[in-house]
Design a protein around this nucleic acid. Structure first.
Lengths: 228, 228
DNA sequence: AAATATATGATAGTATTACTATCATTGTCA
DNA sequence: TGACAATGATAGTAATACTATCATATATTT
Protein backbone atom coordinates (compact mmCIF):
# COMPACT_ATOMS: atom_id res chain seq x y z
CA UNK A 1 0.00 0.00 0.00
CA UNK A 2 1.20 3.41 -0.98
CA UNK A 3 1.43 6.13 1.65
CA UNK A 4 1.31 9.64 0.28
CA UNK A 5 2.46 12.62 2.27
CA UNK A 6 0.38 15.50 1.03
CA UNK A 7 1.97 18.76 2.04
CA UNK A 8 -0.13 21.13 4.08
CA UNK A 9 -0.93 24.13 1.93
CA UNK A 10 -2.19 27.47 3.25
CA UNK A 11 -5.92 27.30 2.66
CA UNK A 12 -6.20 30.94 1.66
CA UNK A 13 -4.45 30.05 -1.58
CA UNK A 14 -7.41 28.14 -2.99
CA UNK A 15 -11.18 28.58 -2.98
CA UNK A 16 -11.94 24.90 -2.52
CA UNK A 17 -9.39 22.30 -1.45
CA UNK A 18 -8.37 20.40 -4.58
CA UNK A 19 -7.19 17.28 -2.77
CA UNK A 20 -10.69 16.75 -1.32
CA UNK A 21 -12.38 15.90 -4.62
CA UNK A 22 -11.82 13.98 -7.82
CA UNK A 23 -12.13 17.05 -9.97
CA UNK A 24 -9.74 18.97 -7.70
CA UNK A 25 -7.13 16.26 -7.93
CA UNK A 26 -7.49 16.17 -11.71
CA UNK A 27 -6.99 19.93 -11.81
CA UNK A 28 -3.69 20.01 -9.95
CA UNK A 29 -2.49 16.77 -11.50
CA UNK A 30 -3.13 17.86 -15.07
CA UNK A 31 -2.05 21.44 -14.60
CA UNK A 32 1.46 20.22 -13.79
CA UNK A 33 1.63 18.63 -17.22
CA UNK A 34 -0.02 21.43 -19.08
CA UNK A 35 1.94 24.30 -17.52
CA UNK A 36 5.09 22.44 -18.43
CA UNK A 37 4.15 21.86 -22.03
CA UNK A 38 2.68 25.27 -22.77
CA UNK A 39 4.58 27.48 -20.37
CA UNK A 40 2.60 29.41 -17.78
CA UNK A 41 1.86 32.35 -20.10
CA UNK A 42 0.04 30.27 -22.71
CA UNK A 43 -1.59 28.06 -20.10
CA UNK A 44 -5.17 28.87 -19.12
CA UNK A 45 -8.22 27.33 -17.49
CA UNK A 46 -10.03 26.83 -20.77
CA UNK A 47 -7.25 24.62 -22.09
CA UNK A 48 -6.98 22.84 -18.75
CA UNK A 49 -10.73 22.25 -18.80
CA UNK A 50 -10.50 20.67 -22.23
CA UNK A 51 -7.61 18.50 -21.05
CA UNK A 52 -9.49 17.03 -18.09
CA UNK A 53 -12.87 17.00 -19.88
CA UNK A 54 -14.34 19.54 -17.54
CA UNK A 55 -15.05 23.25 -17.99
CA UNK A 56 -13.43 26.59 -17.34
CA UNK A 57 -16.15 27.54 -14.88
CA UNK A 58 -15.63 24.41 -12.80
CA UNK A 59 -11.93 25.11 -12.40
CA UNK A 60 -12.63 28.67 -11.35
CA UNK A 61 -14.48 27.20 -8.37
CA UNK A 62 -11.18 25.83 -7.06
CA UNK A 63 -8.83 28.67 -7.90
CA UNK A 64 -9.78 32.31 -8.46
CA UNK A 65 -7.20 32.65 -11.22
CA UNK A 66 -4.28 30.85 -12.78
CA UNK A 67 -1.72 32.77 -10.74
CA UNK A 68 -3.14 31.26 -7.55
CA UNK A 69 -2.93 27.80 -9.06
CA UNK A 70 0.76 28.43 -9.75
CA UNK A 71 1.19 29.69 -6.19
CA UNK A 72 -0.45 26.48 -5.01
CA UNK A 73 1.85 24.27 -7.08
CA UNK A 74 4.92 26.19 -5.90
CA UNK A 75 3.83 25.94 -2.28
CA UNK A 76 3.39 22.20 -2.81
CA UNK A 77 6.92 21.95 -4.17
CA UNK A 78 8.61 23.99 -1.43
CA UNK A 79 6.62 22.31 1.30
CA UNK A 80 7.66 18.92 -0.04
CA UNK A 81 11.32 19.99 -0.14
CA UNK A 82 11.16 21.40 3.34
CA UNK A 83 9.54 18.28 4.76
CA UNK A 84 12.27 16.23 3.14
CA UNK A 85 15.10 18.39 4.39
CA UNK A 86 13.75 18.42 7.92
CA UNK A 87 13.20 14.67 8.02
CA UNK A 88 16.59 13.94 6.45
CA UNK A 89 18.56 16.19 8.80
CA UNK A 90 16.90 16.09 12.20
CA UNK A 91 18.63 12.90 13.26
CA UNK A 92 22.06 14.22 12.26
CA UNK A 93 24.21 16.04 14.79
CA UNK A 94 27.04 17.42 12.67
CA UNK A 95 25.62 20.62 11.16
CA UNK A 96 27.98 20.46 8.18
CA UNK A 97 26.66 17.07 7.28
CA UNK A 98 23.16 18.47 7.71
CA UNK A 99 23.86 21.15 5.14
CA UNK A 100 25.25 18.63 2.70
CA UNK A 101 22.12 16.51 3.05
CA UNK A 102 19.91 19.57 2.74
CA UNK A 103 21.59 20.60 -0.51
CA UNK A 104 21.19 17.07 -1.82
CA UNK A 105 17.51 17.05 -0.96
CA UNK A 106 16.99 20.49 -2.46
CA UNK A 107 18.62 19.78 -5.80
CA UNK A 108 17.65 16.19 -6.48
CA UNK A 109 14.44 14.32 -7.05
CA UNK A 110 14.74 10.70 -6.02
CA UNK A 111 12.54 7.66 -6.46
CA UNK A 112 11.96 7.71 -2.74
CA UNK A 113 10.68 11.29 -2.76
CA UNK A 114 8.49 10.63 -5.76
CA UNK A 115 6.94 7.51 -4.30
CA UNK A 116 5.49 9.55 -1.44
CA UNK A 117 4.12 12.33 -3.60
CA UNK A 118 1.05 12.37 -5.82
CA UNK A 119 2.38 15.16 -8.07
CA UNK A 120 5.21 14.51 -10.50
CA UNK A 121 8.21 16.14 -8.80
CA UNK A 122 10.43 16.43 -11.85
CA UNK A 123 7.75 18.37 -13.63
CA UNK A 124 7.02 20.41 -10.53
CA UNK A 125 10.70 21.29 -10.30
CA UNK A 126 10.70 22.32 -13.95
CA UNK A 127 7.72 24.59 -13.29
CA UNK A 128 9.32 26.20 -10.28
CA UNK A 129 12.54 26.65 -12.22
CA UNK A 130 10.77 28.39 -15.08
CA UNK A 131 7.94 30.21 -13.41
CA UNK A 132 8.61 30.85 -9.72
CA UNK A 133 9.70 34.43 -10.28
CA UNK A 134 6.40 35.17 -12.00
CA UNK A 135 4.66 34.93 -8.65
CA UNK A 136 7.33 36.47 -6.42
CA UNK A 137 8.38 39.46 -8.53
CA UNK A 138 5.09 41.24 -8.90
CA UNK A 139 3.40 44.34 -7.59
CA UNK A 140 1.00 42.02 -5.75
CA UNK A 141 3.84 40.19 -4.03
CA UNK A 142 3.73 42.21 -0.80
CA UNK A 143 0.04 41.63 -0.28
CA UNK A 144 0.36 37.98 -1.24
CA UNK A 145 3.08 37.69 1.34
CA UNK A 146 0.80 39.19 3.96
CA UNK A 147 -1.85 36.64 3.01
CA UNK A 148 0.69 33.95 3.76
CA UNK A 149 1.00 32.58 0.23
CA UNK A 150 4.77 32.23 0.51
CA UNK A 151 4.90 30.55 3.91
CA UNK A 152 6.18 27.26 2.54
CA UNK A 153 9.04 28.92 0.74
CA UNK A 154 9.90 30.98 3.80
CA UNK A 155 9.83 27.92 6.02
CA UNK A 156 12.34 26.27 3.72
CA UNK A 157 14.60 29.33 3.90
CA UNK A 158 14.39 29.24 7.66
CA UNK A 159 15.27 25.55 7.82
CA UNK A 160 18.39 26.14 5.76
CA UNK A 161 19.39 29.30 7.58
CA UNK A 162 19.06 27.44 10.89
CA UNK A 163 21.63 24.94 9.70
CA UNK A 164 23.89 27.77 8.57
CA UNK A 165 23.64 29.36 12.00
CA UNK A 166 24.57 26.05 13.61
CA UNK A 167 27.70 25.79 11.48
CA UNK A 168 28.81 29.37 11.94
CA UNK A 169 26.91 31.35 14.55
CA UNK A 170 28.94 34.44 13.64
CA UNK A 171 28.00 34.43 9.98
CA UNK A 172 26.35 37.77 9.39
CA UNK A 173 23.80 36.88 6.73
CA UNK A 174 22.34 33.41 7.29
CA UNK A 175 18.92 34.21 5.81
CA UNK A 176 20.32 35.93 2.75
CA UNK A 177 22.66 33.04 2.23
CA UNK A 178 19.83 30.51 2.52
CA UNK A 179 17.65 32.43 0.07
CA UNK A 180 20.61 32.83 -2.23
CA UNK A 181 21.38 29.11 -2.16
CA UNK A 182 17.85 28.24 -3.17
CA UNK A 183 17.97 30.84 -5.91
CA UNK A 184 21.28 29.44 -7.08
CA UNK A 185 19.81 25.99 -7.39
CA UNK A 186 16.95 27.35 -9.50
CA UNK A 187 19.04 29.74 -11.54
CA UNK A 188 21.77 27.33 -12.47
CA UNK A 189 19.26 24.70 -13.39
CA UNK A 190 17.59 27.19 -15.70
CA UNK A 191 20.73 28.78 -17.11
CA UNK A 192 22.48 25.52 -17.92
CA UNK A 193 19.62 24.80 -20.35
CA UNK A 194 18.78 28.27 -21.61
CA UNK A 195 21.63 30.70 -20.99
CA UNK A 196 24.66 28.42 -20.83
CA UNK A 197 27.21 31.22 -20.87
CA UNK A 198 25.98 32.35 -17.44
CA UNK A 199 27.04 29.25 -15.55
CA UNK A 200 29.73 26.62 -15.40
CA UNK A 201 27.08 23.92 -15.03
CA UNK A 202 26.77 21.80 -18.17
CA UNK A 203 23.55 20.22 -19.32
CA UNK A 204 23.58 16.46 -19.16
CA UNK A 205 23.03 13.36 -17.10
CA UNK A 206 24.96 14.61 -14.08
CA UNK A 207 23.61 18.16 -14.06
CA UNK A 208 22.08 17.86 -10.60
CA UNK A 209 25.28 16.36 -9.26
CA UNK A 210 27.20 19.31 -10.70
CA UNK A 211 24.84 21.79 -9.07
CA UNK A 212 25.06 19.92 -5.78
CA UNK A 213 28.87 20.00 -5.90
CA UNK A 214 28.91 23.65 -6.79
CA UNK A 215 26.60 24.62 -3.95
CA UNK A 216 28.67 22.59 -1.52
CA UNK A 217 31.81 24.33 -2.80
CA UNK A 218 30.25 27.74 -2.18
CA UNK A 219 29.07 26.72 1.28
CA UNK A 220 32.47 25.40 2.29
CA UNK A 221 34.11 28.65 1.32
CA UNK A 222 31.45 30.78 2.93
CA UNK A 223 31.26 28.92 6.22
CA UNK A 224 34.39 26.94 6.93
CA UNK A 225 36.62 29.39 8.73
CA UNK A 226 40.31 28.86 9.05
CA UNK A 227 41.44 28.52 12.61
CA UNK A 228 43.47 31.55 13.48
CA UNK B 1 27.55 71.41 -21.97
CA UNK B 2 26.26 68.01 -21.07
CA UNK B 3 27.87 64.94 -22.57
CA UNK B 4 25.69 61.88 -22.63
CA UNK B 5 27.09 58.41 -23.05
CA UNK B 6 24.38 56.43 -24.77
CA UNK B 7 25.02 52.74 -24.37
CA UNK B 8 25.28 50.72 -27.54
CA UNK B 9 22.27 48.45 -27.77
CA UNK B 10 22.01 45.43 -30.04
CA UNK B 11 20.02 46.72 -33.00
CA UNK B 12 18.04 43.52 -33.41
CA UNK B 13 16.17 44.41 -30.24
CA UNK B 14 14.24 47.29 -31.84
CA UNK B 15 12.59 47.88 -35.21
CA UNK B 16 13.69 51.50 -35.45
CA UNK B 17 16.37 53.07 -33.28
CA UNK B 18 14.58 55.13 -30.63
CA UNK B 19 17.48 57.47 -29.91
CA UNK B 20 17.47 58.68 -33.53
CA UNK B 21 14.16 60.53 -33.33
CA UNK B 22 12.10 62.72 -31.05
CA UNK B 23 9.27 60.24 -30.84
CA UNK B 24 11.68 57.40 -30.17
CA UNK B 25 13.29 59.28 -27.31
CA UNK B 26 9.88 60.09 -25.87
CA UNK B 27 8.97 56.41 -26.04
CA UNK B 28 11.90 55.12 -24.02
CA UNK B 29 11.92 58.13 -21.73
CA UNK B 30 8.25 57.87 -20.81
CA UNK B 31 8.13 54.11 -20.72
CA UNK B 32 10.59 54.16 -17.82
CA UNK B 33 8.10 56.21 -15.83
CA UNK B 34 5.03 54.32 -16.89
CA UNK B 35 6.41 50.81 -16.39
CA UNK B 36 7.41 51.88 -12.90
CA UNK B 37 4.02 53.28 -11.97
CA UNK B 38 1.86 50.58 -13.50
CA UNK B 39 4.15 47.57 -13.33
CA UNK B 40 5.06 45.83 -16.55
CA UNK B 41 1.93 43.66 -16.65
CA UNK B 42 -0.51 46.55 -16.69
CA UNK B 43 1.72 48.66 -18.92
CA UNK B 44 0.87 48.70 -22.63
CA UNK B 45 1.49 50.70 -25.78
CA UNK B 46 -1.96 52.24 -25.76
CA UNK B 47 -1.39 53.80 -22.35
CA UNK B 48 2.12 54.85 -23.34
CA UNK B 49 0.72 56.44 -26.50
CA UNK B 50 -1.75 58.45 -24.45
CA UNK B 51 1.04 59.51 -22.08
CA UNK B 52 3.27 60.92 -24.83
CA UNK B 53 0.36 62.17 -26.95
CA UNK B 54 1.08 59.76 -29.72
CA UNK B 55 -0.59 56.52 -30.76
CA UNK B 56 -0.29 52.83 -30.22
CA UNK B 57 0.46 52.24 -33.90
CA UNK B 58 3.35 54.70 -33.88
CA UNK B 59 5.03 52.96 -30.96
CA UNK B 60 4.68 49.60 -32.66
CA UNK B 61 6.93 51.03 -35.38
CA UNK B 62 9.78 51.18 -32.88
CA UNK B 63 9.23 47.99 -30.92
CA UNK B 64 7.37 44.90 -32.13
CA UNK B 65 5.92 44.34 -28.66
CA UNK B 66 6.24 45.49 -25.08
CA UNK B 67 8.54 42.66 -24.13
CA UNK B 68 11.14 43.92 -26.56
CA UNK B 69 10.87 47.39 -25.10
CA UNK B 70 11.59 45.89 -21.68
CA UNK B 71 14.52 43.99 -23.15
CA UNK B 72 15.76 47.28 -24.59
CA UNK B 73 15.49 49.09 -21.25
CA UNK B 74 17.24 46.23 -19.43
CA UNK B 75 20.03 46.17 -22.00
CA UNK B 76 20.40 49.92 -21.51
CA UNK B 77 20.73 49.43 -17.76
CA UNK B 78 23.24 46.57 -17.89
CA UNK B 79 25.27 48.23 -20.60
CA UNK B 80 25.44 51.38 -18.49
CA UNK B 81 26.54 49.40 -15.44
CA UNK B 82 29.15 47.51 -17.42
CA UNK B 83 30.58 50.67 -18.95
CA UNK B 84 30.85 52.15 -15.48
CA UNK B 85 32.48 49.11 -13.97
CA UNK B 86 35.01 48.86 -16.76
CA UNK B 87 35.89 52.54 -16.66
CA UNK B 88 36.11 52.58 -12.85
CA UNK B 89 38.34 49.52 -12.60
CA UNK B 90 40.67 49.50 -15.59
CA UNK B 91 43.18 51.86 -14.02
CA UNK B 92 43.34 49.85 -10.80
CA UNK B 93 45.91 47.12 -10.39
CA UNK B 94 44.82 45.39 -7.19
CA UNK B 95 42.05 43.00 -8.26
CA UNK B 96 40.48 43.02 -4.80
CA UNK B 97 40.07 46.76 -4.99
CA UNK B 98 38.64 46.29 -8.47
CA UNK B 99 35.94 44.00 -7.12
CA UNK B 100 35.07 46.42 -4.37
CA UNK B 101 34.67 49.21 -6.91
CA UNK B 102 32.67 46.96 -9.22
CA UNK B 103 30.24 46.09 -6.43
CA UNK B 104 29.88 49.75 -5.57
CA UNK B 105 29.15 50.62 -9.18
CA UNK B 106 26.71 47.78 -9.52
CA UNK B 107 24.65 48.57 -6.46
CA UNK B 108 24.63 52.35 -6.37
CA UNK B 109 23.32 55.08 -8.60
CA UNK B 110 25.35 58.25 -8.20
CA UNK B 111 24.89 61.81 -9.40
CA UNK B 112 27.90 61.30 -11.62
CA UNK B 113 26.38 58.26 -13.34
CA UNK B 114 23.06 59.97 -13.77
CA UNK B 115 24.55 63.12 -15.25
CA UNK B 116 25.90 61.11 -18.17
CA UNK B 117 22.70 59.20 -18.84
CA UNK B 118 19.50 60.38 -20.50
CA UNK B 119 17.34 57.76 -18.79
CA UNK B 120 16.53 58.00 -15.09
CA UNK B 121 18.79 55.35 -13.55
CA UNK B 122 16.95 54.98 -10.26
CA UNK B 123 13.78 54.17 -12.10
CA UNK B 124 15.63 51.92 -14.50
CA UNK B 125 17.08 50.05 -11.55
CA UNK B 126 13.62 49.69 -10.06
CA UNK B 127 12.36 48.25 -13.34
CA UNK B 128 15.21 45.78 -13.61
CA UNK B 129 14.69 44.80 -9.97
CA UNK B 130 11.00 44.11 -10.51
CA UNK B 131 10.83 42.88 -14.07
CA UNK B 132 14.13 41.46 -15.27
CA UNK B 133 13.11 37.86 -14.68
CA UNK B 134 10.08 38.37 -16.90
CA UNK B 135 12.36 38.50 -19.91
CA UNK B 136 14.97 35.95 -18.86
CA UNK B 137 12.76 33.19 -17.48
CA UNK B 138 10.60 32.46 -20.49
CA UNK B 139 10.18 29.76 -23.08
CA UNK B 140 11.46 32.31 -25.62
CA UNK B 141 14.60 32.96 -23.63
CA UNK B 142 16.84 30.55 -25.54
CA UNK B 143 15.95 32.02 -28.90
CA UNK B 144 16.25 35.56 -27.56
CA UNK B 145 19.68 34.65 -26.32
CA UNK B 146 20.63 33.41 -29.78
CA UNK B 147 19.43 36.71 -31.22
CA UNK B 148 21.85 38.45 -28.87
CA UNK B 149 19.27 40.24 -26.75
CA UNK B 150 21.13 39.49 -23.53
CA UNK B 151 24.61 40.47 -24.70
CA UNK B 152 24.82 43.45 -22.39
CA UNK B 153 23.98 41.41 -19.33
CA UNK B 154 26.41 38.71 -20.34
CA UNK B 155 29.17 41.26 -20.92
CA UNK B 156 28.63 42.51 -17.38
CA UNK B 157 28.86 38.98 -16.01
CA UNK B 158 32.09 38.48 -17.91
CA UNK B 159 33.58 41.72 -16.59
CA UNK B 160 32.90 40.64 -13.04
CA UNK B 161 34.02 37.07 -13.52
CA UNK B 162 37.29 38.37 -15.01
CA UNK B 163 37.97 40.24 -11.80
CA UNK B 164 37.13 37.13 -9.78
CA UNK B 165 39.59 35.12 -11.85
CA UNK B 166 42.29 37.72 -11.22
CA UNK B 167 41.76 37.49 -7.47
CA UNK B 168 41.63 33.72 -7.29
CA UNK B 169 42.62 31.91 -10.49
CA UNK B 170 41.79 28.61 -8.83
CA UNK B 171 38.20 29.48 -7.97
CA UNK B 172 36.13 26.86 -9.71
CA UNK B 173 32.99 28.84 -10.57
CA UNK B 174 33.84 32.43 -11.52
CA UNK B 175 30.95 32.86 -13.96
CA UNK B 176 28.36 31.36 -11.63
CA UNK B 177 29.67 33.56 -8.85
CA UNK B 178 29.45 36.67 -11.03
CA UNK B 179 25.90 35.87 -12.13
CA UNK B 180 24.98 35.06 -8.58
CA UNK B 181 26.38 38.36 -7.29
CA UNK B 182 24.30 40.34 -9.76
CA UNK B 183 21.24 38.30 -8.85
CA UNK B 184 21.95 38.91 -5.18
CA UNK B 185 22.03 42.64 -5.74
CA UNK B 186 18.66 42.50 -7.51
CA UNK B 187 17.07 39.99 -5.15
CA UNK B 188 18.02 41.68 -1.93
CA UNK B 189 16.93 45.02 -3.25
CA UNK B 190 13.54 43.51 -4.07
CA UNK B 191 13.15 41.40 -0.96
CA UNK B 192 14.04 44.15 1.48
CA UNK B 193 10.95 46.01 0.23
CA UNK B 194 8.58 43.17 -0.52
CA UNK B 195 9.62 39.98 1.27
CA UNK B 196 11.60 41.28 4.24
CA UNK B 197 11.84 37.95 6.00
CA UNK B 198 14.00 36.64 3.16
CA UNK B 199 16.93 38.96 3.75
CA UNK B 200 18.88 40.70 6.48
CA UNK B 201 18.87 43.90 4.44
CA UNK B 202 16.59 46.54 5.95
CA UNK B 203 14.70 49.11 3.95
CA UNK B 204 15.85 52.64 4.53
CA UNK B 205 18.31 55.36 3.62
CA UNK B 206 21.39 53.16 3.71
CA UNK B 207 19.88 50.15 1.95
CA UNK B 208 22.35 50.26 -0.93
CA UNK B 209 25.24 50.57 1.50
CA UNK B 210 23.96 47.51 3.34
CA UNK B 211 23.74 45.52 0.11
CA UNK B 212 27.22 46.67 -0.86
CA UNK B 213 28.63 45.58 2.50
CA UNK B 214 26.86 42.28 2.31
CA UNK B 215 28.14 41.50 -1.15
CA UNK B 216 31.66 42.43 -0.12
CA UNK B 217 31.34 40.16 2.91
CA UNK B 218 30.32 37.25 0.69
CA UNK B 219 33.14 37.96 -1.76
CA UNK B 220 35.76 38.11 0.98
CA UNK B 221 34.69 34.75 2.31
CA UNK B 222 34.45 33.19 -1.11
CA UNK B 223 37.75 34.43 -2.46
CA UNK B 224 40.18 35.37 0.29
CA UNK B 225 41.87 32.11 1.17
CA UNK B 226 43.77 31.71 4.38
CA UNK B 227 47.44 31.08 3.86
CA UNK B 228 48.18 27.56 4.89
C1' DA C 1 -39.36 8.55 0.16
C1' DA C 2 -39.24 13.40 -0.08
C1' DA C 3 -36.81 17.51 0.51
C1' DT C 4 -32.68 19.82 0.34
C1' DA C 5 -28.06 20.93 -0.50
C1' DT C 6 -23.84 20.45 -3.08
C1' DA C 7 -20.95 19.68 -7.06
C1' DT C 8 -20.47 19.98 -11.69
C1' DG C 9 -21.69 21.05 -16.51
C1' DA C 10 -23.27 23.92 -20.31
C1' DT C 11 -23.57 28.11 -22.24
C1' DA C 12 -23.36 33.00 -22.86
C1' DG C 13 -21.49 37.32 -22.26
C1' DT C 14 -17.98 41.19 -21.33
C1' DA C 15 -14.02 44.16 -20.91
C1' DT C 16 -9.38 44.22 -21.98
C1' DT C 17 -5.31 43.13 -24.44
C1' DA C 18 -2.03 42.70 -28.01
C1' DC C 19 -1.70 43.29 -31.87
C1' DT C 20 -2.53 44.27 -37.57
C1' DA C 21 -4.09 46.92 -41.42
C1' DT C 22 -5.30 50.89 -43.94
C1' DC C 23 -5.43 55.47 -45.20
C1' DA C 24 -4.64 60.38 -44.36
C1' DT C 25 -1.49 64.19 -43.16
C1' DT C 26 2.72 66.57 -42.51
C1' DG C 27 7.38 67.81 -43.07
C1' DT C 28 11.77 67.25 -45.63
C1' DC C 29 14.98 66.98 -49.05
C1' DA C 30 16.32 66.72 -53.92
C1' DT D 1 7.33 70.29 -57.69
C1' DG D 2 7.47 65.79 -56.37
C1' DA D 3 8.52 61.96 -53.79
C1' DC D 4 9.31 59.77 -49.65
C1' DA D 5 9.61 59.03 -44.76
C1' DA D 6 7.50 59.66 -40.30
C1' DT D 7 3.56 60.06 -37.80
C1' DG D 8 -1.42 60.17 -36.75
C1' DA D 9 -6.17 58.53 -36.90
C1' DT D 10 -9.14 54.98 -37.00
C1' DA D 11 -10.94 50.40 -37.37
C1' DG D 12 -10.82 45.72 -36.74
C1' DT D 13 -9.61 40.97 -34.80
C1' DA D 14 -8.53 36.92 -32.13
C1' DA D 15 -7.53 35.59 -27.69
C1' DT D 16 -7.72 36.12 -22.76
C1' DA D 17 -9.44 36.30 -18.17
C1' DC D 18 -12.81 36.28 -16.20
C1' DT D 19 -18.39 36.56 -14.45
C1' DA D 20 -23.08 35.11 -14.46
C1' DT D 21 -26.87 32.14 -15.02
C1' DC D 22 -29.31 28.06 -15.29
C1' DA D 23 -29.70 23.07 -15.61
C1' DT D 24 -28.67 18.54 -13.93
C1' DA D 25 -26.87 14.84 -11.26
C1' DT D 26 -25.63 13.10 -6.89
C1' DA D 27 -25.40 12.90 -1.96
C1' DT D 28 -27.30 13.96 2.55
C1' DT D 29 -30.73 14.77 5.80
C1' DT D 30 -35.20 14.22 7.75
Amino acid sequence: MQVYVNPRINEDIYLKDPIQSDLGKKIIFSSVNLVNTLGFDKFNFKKLGAEIKSTEASIYRYFPNKERLLIYLSAWYWETKNYLIVSKTNSITDPREKLTKAIKALVNVTEEMQSQNILELHQLQAIVTQEFYKITRTKRCSSHNESGYFESFKRLCTSISDIIKEIDPDFKYPITMATSLIEMSISNNFCSSNLPSLTEIQCGEDKRKQIEDMMTYFCERLLVRCKK
